[in-house]
Amino acid sequence: MNLLVCISRTPETTAKISFAENNTKFNSDGVNYIMNPYDEWYALVRAIELKEAVGGKVIAINVGGPENDIVIRKALAIGADEAVRVNGDPNSALFTATQIANYAKENACDIVFCGKETIDYNGSEVGAMVAELLDQPFISYASKMDVEGTKATVERDIEGGVEVVELDTPFVISAAKGLAEQRIPNMRGIMMAKRKPLAVVEATAVDAKNEIVSYTMPAGKSAVKLIDPENMDELVRLLHEEAKVI
């Protein structure tokens, strides 16, 4: 099977968030970047497991500049067979999805994997866009997937529970917690990753349909009001009269 895994580069979870250029650009000074956890822990690892079970190859695809190569090499170290970086500025879901769909069309992929969202923009948009551009089914928030031949059985998270669905390849899937267990690259993987192919192709132009007007920080929380543990009637009173939530 040809398995394509979309990987994104995001600031790490604990990164300090600030903005530059009159609050119109993310300030990347001093920020550490990682592979988006949903892409790495769940999407990539499930694709590798599937290849190990049924054969084929895992291709990691990333849209971005050369600064992303370190994250792509990590995907290769974890077990992707080859990688492609589409050279361009991934400034919108539409731009990114278009590049991925173009590649998937040319390379006849059986399953396209992505994470359920990136931890920076929290958009959850790319997977659905890729699926639409390929005219393929899209299963979001998958927490379990079994594949036999061309038939897949997928469990997906829905409000308050899960739904079990069946469909045939090809399709696009977004990975949530549970789809696989995180794999830490070992020394052999890291060494081999240096020799695995990482192709760089140029992005195609896409007309932007959104414009960031500005970024702002949410108003800070005022200090916590501590309540005497002996006096829970007071807490209930505050929740009712002050916070007005009960």
């Binding site: 600031p11 968030i17 903005f19 931890i119 920076d120 923009y121 929290n122 959104n210 414009e211 960031i212 007007v213 500005s214 970024y215 702002t216 920080m217 949410p218």
Partner: peptide
């Protein structure tokens, strides 16, 4: 909201 609520973007 972006960054899991740590920032807000105004998008046109």
């Amino acid at each position: 909201k972006l960054f899991s609520g740590k920032a807000i973007a105004s998008i046109k």
